[in-house]
C-alpha cells in the first residue's frame, strides 16, 4: 500500500485580477521506507507542493487534487481540522533556512519540548514538564548533539546553521513521523555539514523505516541518497522513476538537459568545451507558456507541445512528454 498517493494536485494563486496556476496537475506517490527525491530548478513549485501536503499554505493559495490518500485514507473527504490532525501526527517537515524557522525569542529547549506530543507522556500534569524536558534531551541525542545542556539553554541565534538544522530535524522527529519532508535541508551549508545532515537522514530511514521526501534543486547531490526521483519543471510534472532509470536513461528532454548540464555526470566531456544547457530560463509565473511549459526551451518541441502531454508509464518509469527519448535508447 502506498503511504502517500497524490494524483493531479494543482495549486492556484488567487490574485485580485486573475488566478495563476503555480503547480499544474502533479502526481506523487510514496511507499513506506522509501527515500524519494523531488528535483527541479528554483521556482518549479517543489516547496509549494511540500507545503500543500503539510497544509501550511495561507488562504491566498487554493489547492485542488483528484486524489489525496494517506495510508489508504482519503483526506479530501475529511474536514480541514481532521486532515490537519492526521497530517501533523504522521508527517513532519524540515524547512530551508533553519535559522529563520526557529522562534528567535524562545530557547531551543522550550521549542523542542512543545513539539513532543501529549500522547507520549504519562502520569500527572506536574510530572509532564519534566518528561517533556527529558524527551527533548533524548531527541537532541538522536540527532547527534551531545552537549544537550548547552543547546537547550541557547537561543537560535547562538547556534550555527548546521546545528539549527539538526534541531529542526529533532523537532520533526518528536512526533515519530512516518514521512519526513526535507525541503532543501542543506541549502547554504558547507559540504561537511551537508554530508552530516544527509547521513543523519539516511540512518533515520534505515533504522526507523521512515520515508523521506528530499527536495532539492541539485540533481547530483541527492542521487546518492535516494531510491526514486521525481523531476518537476515550472510547476509541471516531468518525469519519475528509480534513481538509476533517471540517471542512465532519462526519457524527458528536460531531465536529459539537467544531467548534461552537470560536469560530474559527463566525465567524457573534452576539456574546455561548453557544457550543454537549455537556452533561456524558467518562465515567471505571470507569463507561463500554454501546454507543456518547457515548450519554448525544449530542443524536441513540435506543434503538439502546445497541449499538455499525458503521463505515460513504462514499468514504473513515468514521463510526461509527447516526444519522449525512450526510442533513442
Amino acid at each position: 500500500m502506498n503511504l502517500l498517493d497524490i494524483r493531479n494536485l494543482s495549486i492556484e494563486l488567487q490574485t485580485t485580477n486573475n488566478s495563476i496556476l503555480a503547480v499544474d496537475h502533479v502526481s506523487l506517490s510514496m511507499k513506506e521506507g522509501e527515500v524519494r527525491g523531488l528535483v527541479g530548478e528554483s521556482g518549479s513549485g517543489k516547496s509549494l507542493l511540500a507545503q500543500a501536503i503539510i497544509g501550511v499554505l495561507d488562504e491566498r493559495w487554493h489547492v485542488h487534487a483528484d486524489r489525496f490518500h494517506w495510508r489508504g485514507k482519503d483526506l479530501l473527504r475529511l474536514s480541514p481540522e481532521e486532515r490537519k490532525s492526521i497530517i501533523s501526527q504522521d508527517v513532519a517537515m524540515i524547512f530551508q533556512e533553519p535559522m529563520s524557522c526557529l522562534d528567535p525569542t524562545t530557547t531551543i529547549g522550550e521549542q523542542l519540548a512543545e513539539a513532543v506530543d501529549t500522547e507520549q507522556l504519562s502520569g500527572y500534569f506536574w510530572q509532564r514538564n519534566q518528561q517533556r524536558k527529558n524527551a527533548a534531551i533524548k531527541l537532541l541525542h538522536k540527532v547527534g548533539i551531545k552537549h544537550h545542556d548547552l543547546c537547550i539553554k541557547s537561543y537560535p541565534h547562538q547556534l550555527t546553521e548546521a546545528l539549527c538544522q539538526r534541531v529542526m530535524i529533532a523537532m520533526a522527529l518528536a512526533k515519530r513521523p512516518m514521512l519526513l519532508i526535507a525541503d532543501e535541508p542543506t541549502a547554504a551549508m558547507e559540504t561537511t555539514n551537508q554530508g552530516q545532515i544527509f547521513r543523519l537522514l539516511a540512518s533515520l530511514n534505515q533504522l526507523k523505516n521512515m520515508s523521506i521526501l528530499l527536495i532539492s534543486h541539485d540533481l547530483e547531490n541527492v542521487t546518492h541518497w535516494t531510491n526514486n526521483i521525481t523531476v518537476m519543471y515550472s510547476g509541471q510534472f516531468v518525469e519519475a522513476g528509480t534513481t538509476k532509470q533517471i540517471f542512465t536513461e532519462p526519457y524527458h528532454p528536460y531531465t536529459r538537459a539537467l544531467l548534461n548540464s552537470s560536469p560530474k555526470a559527463n566525465i567524457e566531456l573534452p576539456v574546455k568545451s561548453r557544457l550543454m544547457t537549455l537556452p533561456g530560463s524558467i518562465p515567471i509565473l505571470q507569463h507561463l507558456p500554454i501546454g507543456c511549459r518547457l515548450g519554448p526551451r525544449c530542443p524536441r518541441a513540435q506543434q503538439a507541445c502546445v497541449k499538455a502531454p499525458k503521463v505515460s508509464n513504462f514499468h514504473g518509469h513515468q514521463v510526461s512528454c509527447h516526444f519522449s527519448l525512450k526510442d533513442t535508447y
Binding site: 503539510i54 501526527q89 517537515m93 524547512f95 522562534d103 524562545t106 512543545e114 523537532m171 518528536a174
Partner: peptide, 19 residues
Amino acid sequence: SYIRAAKAKGLSFLQIIYR
C-alpha cells in the same frame, strides 16, 4: 517562517499566538 514551522509542528492556532 517560524510561525509556519510551528504550524507544521502541529500546534494549534492559539498555542502559536500565545507561545
